[in-house]
Design a protein around this nucleic acid. Structure first.
Length: 584
RNA sequence: GCGCCCGUAGCUCAGUGGAUCAGAGCAGCGGACUUCUAAUCCGCAGGUCGGAGGUUCGAGUCCUCCCGGGCGCGCCA
């Protein structure tokens, strides 16, 4: 369905025929041949670099090869023009009939338009959010959540076998701090005056109900008990409560993970020891002393012997510690075990979605995955830059220390999940993003969510009107696909079909590059093509979609509208945004 | 000091495996409506793609260095 592939095949066939006929040398490699849309639209619909790629191995001038190829390509019934351009590009321009076929394909495929069935892609694990279970999610998490969810979705659509996953960091010092903070709230619930929340504890109000619940469960049992007696139980209870909160927040965003993996369970199951033994067996774990960091030496630096992973063997800057001085594992060690677990589960590709502050962590993680999988498993880390919350152009101040920050739920409740999801994909993930409450709720061209949804709503509105005004017309997809699409000849009609026909290529590129934002950008383009055509009908009544008395033309135009609506809906669903039937 | 990311129009950003004459929106200017066929559209104007080298038939795109911004840098996750 990606017509660029079809054309590349056709070009290879013609080149092979030319070689057989003796016009080209035999045995040429066609691997580097690409078919792309030219940058300039007046250069035609597609361009191929075939002649430039083959010039050197064939020992011929590129223009000569292009001219040879232009003959058979230009003779094809779909081709309007085949022109040799520049240093040896072959530009092809198609007849309308070519585009009518693409629309027919889109209509026939409906919700599966652009889906890649035999795309392979293997088994892919996408790990995202993995927010610490020590409090509710904030807006920064939303970006990773939306990005990861949309990525998993587009990969699935592109034929990969995808598992989406959340790693629960429910082990280590932060959970102990959480347990202590919860104990404080428990005492508070029992009537104690707790005063200021001490530094190092979580001050947020969200632990108050957890404390109350524990007071109801345990009464005064642990009121003055030593920490060792209540720490595990309180930690577990708090983590469970926080995870319920986080899942609720994610649910409100329409984000769902297939698998939740618990760090503490990995530790308890001895997975960390197992993994480090494996690495030790490969000679990659040793006791050693690290050099102090250059330039910015911490005050309290002193040389210390540590258990280290030899990540420098795999391109990291220094070897990385796996054990703290109290004997417990570092986070890196448990994360290593987690990745070993993912590898053992048979994934071909691991994708991790992290905040930008984890950039320094990438090299060691790649090192571990390479070491554990023998280079068989690919690890791609996608970093999401910060989100700046804005209100009327002014940044919203947030103080995490004071426990005062805008939670994800606050934002979702205020503007809706569709807005949050779309806006998070209006920038590349590695570029910072401003999220302005005023803009994103506005109903105007400034607001891309609205713009795209409005295009879809307009399509649906036309189809609804058609059903009432022309009840005799069969609006079923099958019937519309059989309409005489040859009626569609206006440049803006063809432009809309071209945009729609480009969708399979967008899916493929977004999946391959792990860049779901491309879908959001594409949808804006498709919506723009539709809005343009719609307005044509205002200026010229003969260009309206519904032409009374001309059923053939009306059916063809409704087919186009239906295809467009379908394309918008498919794309919106992949990024998790509801295709609105109407906007009021 | 080192590592990673970024630098494209006044502003916010796209630019798909390097490929023919650099794109969009906003803001600005000029046009098209009694609102699900104007919450929209059309036109005009706006850039030595941070700088300098290098590779190449060809560089916004790849390599090196420099300048500027962000993030990070041994027992935090």
């Amino acid at each position: 369905m990606n017509y660029f592939h079809t054309l590349r095949e056709r070009i290879r066939v013609e080149l092979a025929l030319l070689a057989e006929a003796g016009a080209l040398p035999k045995g040429l490699e066609f691997g580097g041949i690409a078919v792309d849309p030219p940058r300039e639209s007046n250069h035609g619909d597609v361009a191929t670099n075939a002649a430039l790629v083959l010039a050197k191995p064939a020992g011929m001038a590129p223009q000569k090869i292009a001219a040879l190829l232009a003959e058979p390509m230009g003779a094809h019934a779909d081709t309007e023009r085949a022109e040799v351009a520049g240093p040896g590009f072959l530009n092809l321009t198609f007849r309308d009939s070519f585009w009518h076929k693409r629309l027919a394909e889109a209509l026939a495929a409906r919700d599966d338009f652009g889906r890649i069935r035999d795309g392979g892609g293997g088994r892919v694990n996408v790990e995202y959010v993995s927010a610490n279970p020590t409090g509710p999610m904030h807006v920064g998490h939303a970006r990773g959540a939306v990005f990861g969810d949309a990525l998993a979705s587009v990969l699935t659509f592109a034929g990969a076998d995808v598992t989406s996953e959340f790693f629960i960091n429910d082990a280590g010092a932060q959970v102990e701090a959480l347990a202590r903070s919860t104990h404080l709230r428990y005492r508070q619930a029992l009537g104690h005056e707790i005063g200021e929340i001490p530094a190092g504890m979580y001050p947020g109000d969200y632990l108050v109900p957890v404390g109350q619940q524990l007071a109801a469960t345990y009464g005064k049992t642990y009121e003055n008990a030593p920490e060792a007696e209540w720490r595990d139980a309180f930690g577990d209870a708090a983590v469970a409560a926080m995870m319920r909160e986080i899942r609720g927040d994610l649910d409100a965003l329409g984000v769902r993970h297939d698998v939740f993996t618990s760090e503490s369970e990995l530790v308890a199951a001895g997975k960390v020891d197992d993994t480090l033994s494996t690495l030790r067996g490969k000679g990659l774990i040793y006791e050693g002393v690290l050099e102090p960091p250059k330039g910015k030496e911490p005050e309290d630096w002193e040389p210390r012997e540590q258990t280290l992973f030899r990540s420098t063997d795999f391109g990291d800057d220094i070897d990385r510690p796996v054990r703290k001085s109290d004997g417990s594992w570092t986070y890196f060690a448990t994360d290593t075990a987690y990745h070993a677990d993912k590898i053992a589960r048979g994934f071909d590709t691991l994708i991790n979605v992290w905040g930008a502050d984890h950039g320094g962590y990438i090299k060691r993680m790649r090192a571990v995955v390479e070491a554990l999988s023998g280079g068989e498993v690919a690890l791609d880390v996608q970093l999401c830059q910060l989100v700046r919350l804005m209100r009327r152009g002014q940044p919203v101040k947030m103080s995490k220390r004071a426990g005062e920050f805008v939670t994800l739920r606050d934002v979702t409740d205020e503007v809706g999940k569709d807005v949050v999801r779309f806006i998070m994909l209006t920038r590349r993930n590695d570029a910072p993003l401003d999220f302005d409450f005023a803009t994103v709720t506005e109903q105007s061209r400034d607001n891309p969510v609205f713009y795209v949804q409005y295009a879809h709503a307009r399509c649906r509105s036309v189809l609804r009107n058609a059903a009432t005004e022309l009840p005799a017309l069969d609006l079923s997809p099958a019937a519309l696909a059989d309409a005489d699409l040859g009626c569609l000849t206006h440049p803006d009609e063809i432009a809309l079909i071209k945009s729609l026909a480009g969708w399979p290529r967008v899916v493929e590129a977004a999946a391959e590059a792990h860049e779901p934002h491309r879908i959001a950008f594409y949808l804006r383009e498709l919506a723009a093509c539709f809005h343009t055509l719609w307005t044509r009908g205002k200026e010229d009544a003969t260009l309206r979609f519904l032409i009374p008395g001309d059923e053939a033309r009306t059916a063809a135009r409704l087919a186009l509208v239906s295809g467009c609506a379908s394309g918008l809906a498919v794309g919106l669903r992949i990024i998790g945004v509801t295709p609105a039937e109407e906007l009021r």
